[in-house]
Amino acid sequence: MTTPRTSPSRDDSTTGDETQEVESPTDDVDTETALGREPAFQVADRQPLSTLLGRPVVVGVLLLALSVLVVPIVTTFVSSFARTATGALPTGFVTLEHWRYVLGFGEYGVRANAIPGLTFSVGIATAGMLLNVLIGVPVAYALSRYEFYARDWVNTLAILPLVPGVILGIAFLRTYPERGGSALGLVVGYCLLKSPYMVLTVQSSFQSMDLRHLEESARSLGASWPRALLTVIFPHAKQGILAGCIITWTLAAAEFNFTYMVHTGDPKPFSLFLFRNISNAPYLQSAAAISIYFLIVVVAILVLQTIGNSGFTTVRE
């Protein structure tokens, strides 16, 4: 446990030093004699209990929350390479048996491997992502740049998910009985469900720019409005757009609730493959199936962090 006094923290180190000066007895004597009078208010000599406990407790909660979030992820990933998992910890490393199985190289692999579903989902997610660029970027621009009637309502509609996937799923199936569960239905559904992530990410990129003056500079220099957007505005927001693409793509690649409701037939999307593994397959095999997705998320986060997002979130640094 560290105490505020000695820890190199941003808020405590600077102000902590000041407190030290005021509190140290020699210093007190010095100032008192120098001034020749008692200080009107004495700063308490001992640190209150909350000061002693505050930081350890806060850091403790952080570590607890972090371990609850991370330990199962790491365990799952590590387990996917284990031979057996009967005790508390998986044993018998390292085997690629489960990975071979879920990736379709094993003996039974042909029947239930991830590749066809993953390929299908990657295609759907990519299409949904591209549609989201075409729809989300313009609306994010209009909302950041212009004032207009009912702007707040359009904003709310654009940044808050309209309906959860389950409910959109049943509504979709009834509205478009022929197409609802098809690839097209999935693309459109994913696009709507994930569009808030695109709009929010791109908006936060736009907000860090002097949007109006950039556009006006470009136009005064002779660029037509569409040309100003394409040659000046969108290139300035390219990191935000890229971040929005990664987030919407990753979320769509493993979208379950909507997919579960609408999808029938083959190939099965990746999330339904995961579902089948989680609910029916042996533990270690499920672990391998899920680990495929973990790898995707890790790559997504690494790219997001290099282009200025703080993690898998729309919040930009």
Binding site: L69, P72, T76, A254, S310, G311
Partner: peptide
């Protein structure tokens, strides 16, 4: 930060599996 944000990417069924792991 990356670790804390990681679960945002996880679909509900995977979260369920995480709970089973714990």
């Amino acid at each position: 930060v990356a670790a804390v944000s990681f679960p945002i990417a996880l679909p509900g069924i995977v979260v369920a599996f995480m709970i089973v792991v714990l």
